[in-house]
Design a protein around this nucleic acid. Sequence first.
DNA 1: TGAGCTTCGGTCG
DNA 2: TCACTCGACCGAAGCTCA
Length: 890
Amino acid sequence: MEPGDSKEQDSILSSVALNDNKAGMQGLDKNKINKIILETSKGSRFYENELKKERQVNQRIEKMMRYKAKVTEQQIQKAQAEVDSLTADLERRRVLERVIVHVDMDAFYAAVEMRDCPELKEKPMAVGSMSMLSTSNYHARRYGVRAAMPGFIAKKLCPDLVIVPPNFDKYRAVSEQVREVFADYDPNFLPMSLDEAYLDITEHLKQRQHWPDSRRTYQICEMKITGELYECETGVREETDTLSPVLFEDSPSSSPVLPRAEEKVEVFGTSPEEAVREMRFRIEQKTSLTASAGIAPNMMLAKVCSDKNKPNGQYRILPERKAVMDFIQELPVRKVSGIGKVTEKMLAALGIISCSQLSQQMAMLSLLFSDTTWHHFLQISLGLGSTRIERDTERKSMSTERTFAEMSDVYEQYSLCKELCQDLAKDLQRESLKGKTITLKLKNVNFEVKTRAFTLQCAVCSEEEIFAAAKDLLKAEIDTVSPLPLRLRLMGVRISSFISADDKQPQQKSIMGFLKISSDGSSSAQPSKSEMDSMLGFSVGSTKEQCIDTKNPFSKWQTGTGCTTEPRQQTFFQKAHAKRLRKQSEQEETSGPNLEKILESFPRDSPNNCAEETQTLARTSHPPTDEADSSLSITNTESKARSANTMQHFTCPVCFNQIETENLTLFNRHIDKCLSGEPDSKSMNDSQHVFEVEKNLGTQNKAKKDDHKNPDLNAVGMKLKLDKEASFPSSFRPNYKSSAHSDCKTPFFKHYKSTTEKPFHLPDKAMSYSGSGSFHQTTNTVNLNEQPDANFSTLICPVCNQTQDTDDLILFNHHVDMCLNQEVLLEIRRTVPPMAQTESKAEDHGKCSAAKGKSKRRGSSPPPPPKKTKAIRTRHTIDQFFKGNCSQNL
DNA sequence: TGAGCTTCGGTCG
DNA sequence: TCACTCGACCGAAGCTCA
């Protein structure tokens, strides 16, 4: 089928056409509305992209139908047996005892605006903008104007439409009032958004049976006339005719008419219907807004029911199997939350429109769809859903994105990326979350969406850490289309793979922990006073695994952490290191170089340089590859050096010589040469005044080494294998597949520069940790004879801090193992709670399934939703509905 | 082979 | 007057790698 084909135009209607699956939109002239929508959309890039998506769905359907045609009778019979078995199991476990209520405020945002601006009451209005509407009132819905419709199309449908910009602070305040009412019926109610919630009122109803009438009696002013608690809700309007600003004259409400002013009081009964009517009455009294509700034995049904008599109505399914099945039989599948237009279309292709048809073809569905999907279908067809309202379900990801007019300017793109990371970091910190996977989402001007992600080895939460990752993903995309500009219309940043609360505190002392010498992750080349203090053991240090360092001019990735929001504890190795430093410090007070002086030999880096970094990257977005790979991490400093147009002193982290240059590319080359073992004439000419003590130490060691003359050591020592790509253990490197700039040549050992000795001599001998407490040499061969002091190397045990006079890494590993066995175990025994203790803690908090690998995020009532309408992470997903039953039934 | 990761796309309001 | 299709979240499929 060719684009533009009339058949395809009919088809596309399902994509851009009116979705009238919403209260107040029945009986509209859909053809007329769709014609207008089509005319307005046609020819746009959006429309073209929708056509493309439509074709993809059609292909999926064709594929499904081809598969269906090949299904044999035998397969069907086998599938039917499985369906029957599962059905019987589900039936056995059917729970009808709970009374679940779904409450949904009617046209919430629009209703609030109409309440506060009465002249809007009689007009078609919507809340949103010309590009997108959040909701519309019922006058507007008669024209086909609905939520998630672009304002400009809505204007075509209804030229008189008044579009009011949203005021989320106001909606949040009203929502809070509504939630106060909810809490009286179920203190553990589950808010789904600002205007929706699930409640389990089973316990409330039990108590309610014993209440005197007086406790169920309300005056118009929401005053209980008698009883100990004489309360009057605030914000009550005295006049009845101002109570319902939404003006739903055609409301199919099944609830009794609310009391009129002259009646003054209303006594509510003890049944579920009466309790819910009372709740809605109180909401209306308190906010002057109406709500609709559904009452059913589970969440899935309650949700469908709340829509049944919308607006300002309620509907109940009795807790009997027959009542449930009668309700389900004729229910269109599209009415079920979680079944959208694509699933609806695929089911329609199989002749399935209603839930009864769903159950008739379940065997076939089990062959055509994944297990998860057809299990969902089966439960829908049986009218099953979650009977437990779980408030603290685990959030899986958090993101933020923005749509804008075309953006091709690289500088703007990086700036926006930074801004998004900032927003995301704030949200993360608000919910005390840390995640490991950073995803960049890009939508180009043709509406094509791309996501690019990578996963770090440690969870992060700060703006800098997120941006460090996101900017590289962005750079990779910019480079991909280079020299053409990346023409964007949307950018988003997402974080996922959250670590659980328990994981936030390390439970195991690892060798990795040792290598995080950076004390607080501030990671400027010049340690701060606090960092110094920390290194000297005067304050706690970080325990986090390797994080991105945006500020270190030498290293994009380095040990240490920028995760600064949590109280930090020193690892065993950090303590050992601090202890060592303390000793050295004491020694240096009388002799030897001052620690701070040595550290000053590193170039200073601005503590707050991310904006600058963004600019740098933006302006040098297409650097020559050879420069980019080795010096990306230095770009920031480089830019500053360039912009300042001054000579800067840099200390090579490999040979430790000071290099004076204004061009960091040269400095990078120097480092590369050092790493590869080549002499660098420039560096050799530069001053080498810094490490006298180190040289002395080296000389001593050399003398000792020469004494040994071990033939085995010579054999190994002349040609050591060096992992040029990473001069720190490979296991510390982040998983960075998605970026072309993972090359990291200079990190890690910079910290040791702060000491008067080289604890690992890693520049000379790169080792990687094998994971079992030992180090091993890796890959590239380097002739150490070409390096100063290259014909021997001194290894210092990271545990006991004693110099090991051997080049034999096997011997060295053996020594480290021995030390680890002794000291680490002692330390772990002393500081880490026994495993059993941790597990019992998890059990205390977790419910049912909470004792799995993942731990639930815990906490009491969440604060008002930080992100627009999202109050709690659960959504109306099929999964959510069946969660309770799944755990019970499946 | 299966766990983990990445990408795509479905759903909701 | 004009404006010209969002943002958040989750899950499945497909891929990679040990």
